[in-house]
Computed example of a mutant assay.
Amino acid sequence: MTADRPRVLILGGTTEGYALAEALVADGRWDPVSSLAGRTANPRPPAGDMRVGGFGGPEGLARWLTDQGIAAVIDATHPFARRMGWNAATACADTGVPLLRLERPKWVPRDGDAWTLVPDWDAAVDALRTLRAQRVLLAVGRQEVAPFAVLPDVWMLIRSVQAPDPMPPFTHAELLLARGPFSLEDETALLRDQRIDTIVCKNSGGATESKLAAARALGVRVVMRDRPRRPETVTVATVDAATGWLDRAIG
């Protein structure tokens, strides 16, 4: 940190985290460092400084904030990165460092949607049984597909950026390696060509809503996992609002 540029930790890896880092570097009043979880090989470097990997729980994060002279933390992690959110809240409370949550809005069902909302993947598996799903687009991330391998009579199209390692013992499954966001036209073609009757996904929000629009148009059902509970933290939905908060929090 320089005398005139307070150092800001961005807990990132999301589109919002990258956009915030770019905005802070372009503004020139802050010195951002983005922390990435390291779950994706060769992540795209954000603007400003970058670190990769965990901190060692809330205690390790608190030590890092103090050692690095961090003036503010902005949690721009994925809506389902629950543990990091709680660690940040604890560490910032212990050190007195201001904390902001930058989070994209949830998706909300619209007229014509056929959603089943679930709190976890076990409930999603039960929902697929109740719905008698036959051909499922599994868009939950490579690390969370294993609970669905208990459905031997359901064909799964597993879409992820990287292949699950190890691959769970699915009876009927096909792997589709692809990185979004995807266009409405592509999502519509995929659901139609693969005869998908049900999508399983997380309520991540953001630009991947095209699969939901395609499902609505084709009458495809959606099993939607709701977001986990987060600590009570000041939250904004846009980069502009985050920079405005920094103005007020640390000048």
Score class of each variant (00 low, 15 high):
45 P>M: 09
106 K>I: 09
122 D>M: 11
118 V>K: 06
240 D>A: 15
36 L>F: 10
30 W>T: 00
146 A>S: 12
2 T>C: 09
91 A>Q: 04
136 V>H: 02
221 R>E: 12
155 W>E: 14
35 S>D: 09
176 L>D: 12
143 Q>H: 13
222 V>M: 10
42 N>T: 10
198 T>V: 15
155 W>I: 04
91 A>V: 05
158 I>S: 02
231 P>M: 09
133 A>H: 12
125 V>N: 11
233 T>P: 07
227 R>F: 05
173 A>H: 09
140 V>E: 07
242 A>W: 06
120 D>V: 01
225 R>H: 00
173 A>M: 10
170 F>A: 07
236 V>F: 05
81 A>Y: 03
140 V>D: 01
26 A>W: 10
68 Q>F: 11
147 P>Q: 04
95 T>A: 13
201 C>S: 11
76 A>L: 07
157 L>C: 11
189 A>M: 11
152 P>Q: 03
236 V>S: 04
191 L>R: 07
93 A>I: 07
166 P>S: 09
126 D>P: 01
195 R>S: 14
184 L>T: 04
13 G>L: 01
246 L>F: 03
190 L>W: 00
169 P>T: 04
154 V>C: 03
68 Q>D: 15
173 A>D: 02
185 E>W: 02
141 G>K: 06
125 V>S: 10
191 L>H: 04
28 G>T: 11
240 D>S: 14
172 H>N: 14
207 A>L: 13
219 G>Y: 05
108 V>T: 15
32 P>L: 01
226 D>I: 14
159 R>L: 01
88 A>K: 12
116 T>V: 14
43 P>S: 10
60 G>M: 10
85 G>S: 15
198 T>C: 15
243 T>K: 13
211 K>I: 01
150 V>K: 14
121 W>P: 04
183 S>H: 02
85 G>N: 07
166 P>V: 09
65 L>D: 10
13 G>T: 00
238 T>I: 02
44 R>Q: 12
196 I>K: 00
217 A>T: 13
204 S>K: 07
69 G>F: 08
248 R>W: 10
83 R>P: 02
243 T>L: 15
8 V>G: 09
77 T>N: 09
92 C>E: 07
57 G>K: 11
217 A>Q: 14
6 P>R: 11
172 H>W: 11
145 V>H: 06
154 V>P: 02
75 D>H: 14
204 S>D: 08
69 G>R: 09
156 M>V: 12
118 V>Y: 03
154 V>W: 05
245 W>F: 02
42 N>Y: 07
112 G>C: 00
